[in-house]
Simulated scan of single mutants.
Amino acid sequence: MSTQLPPGVVQILPEGAPCPPKTLALYRDYSCQGPGYGIGAGFNVDLTELPLPAGGSMSKNVSSWVNLTDGDAKLIGKGERAKPMY
C-alpha cells in the first residue's frame, strides 16, 4: 500500500506481526491477524485515513487490538461517547 499515513502511524508488516512498543496496534481480523496499523502514544488519528487492501478503511473494520502505550487509548466515534481501549 503506497498511501501516506497520518503522523504517528505505521503499517504493521508483515500482516499479523506483533504490536510495536509504546503503540496501539489495530488489526482488521480477530486474534491480531490481517492488515494492521500501529498508532504511537499521544497521536489522534481518524481511522478513515487508514486504508485496507481490498478497499474501505479501519474505521469500521477493527476486530482486535493491542495497547502497549503507557495509558488507555480512546475510540471516539462521531457523536458518540469515548470507548476506552485498555
Rank of each mutant, 00 (worst) to 15 (best):
I76V: 15
G38P: 07
T3L: 12
R28N: 15
L5K: 08
D46R: 02
Q4W: 02
N44M: 11
D70W: 00
G79R: 00
P20G: 07
K83M: 06
A41C: 15
R28T: 11
D70V: 00
L13V: 14
Y37W: 04
P35R: 08
L68Q: 10
M58E: 04
I39F: 11
T23C: 13
L47Y: 07
K74E: 10
G77Y: 12
G38S: 04
L5Q: 06
Q4L: 09
Y30R: 13
Q4C: 07
M1W: 14
D46G: 10
K60S: 15
D29W: 04
R81K: 03
Y37I: 09
N44H: 09
Y37L: 14
L75W: 08
L75F: 08
L50A: 06
M1K: 07
G79I: 07
Y86E: 00
D72F: 13
P51N: 01
P6K: 01
A41H: 10
K74Q: 13
M1L: 06
M1S: 14
N67W: 09
G55W: 13
S2T: 09
N44C: 04
F43P: 04
K22W: 01
P18N: 05
K60D: 13
P35S: 14
R81G: 13
T69W: 02
A41W: 05
L50Y: 01
S31V: 06
L75S: 05
P7M: 04
D70K: 00
S64W: 11
M1H: 15
T69K: 03
Y86H: 10
K60E: 13
D72P: 06
P7R: 01
G79S: 06
Y37G: 08
K22P: 01
P35W: 07
Q33H: 01
L47G: 04
T23S: 14
P21Q: 03
G16C: 11
G36N: 01
Q11E: 15
K22T: 00
C19I: 04
G40A: 15
P51C: 03
N61R: 07
K22L: 01
I76M: 03
A25H: 00
Y86A: 14
P7G: 05
M85S: 00
A41Y: 07
D70P: 03
D70F: 01
L26V: 15
P84I: 06
M58R: 02
G71F: 01
R28K: 13
A82D: 04
G79V: 03
K74T: 08
K22N: 13
E15N: 10
M85F: 14
G42T: 06
W65N: 02
E80L: 05
D29Q: 02
V66N: 08
Q4I: 09
A82F: 06
K74I: 06
I76E: 01
G8N: 03
L13N: 03
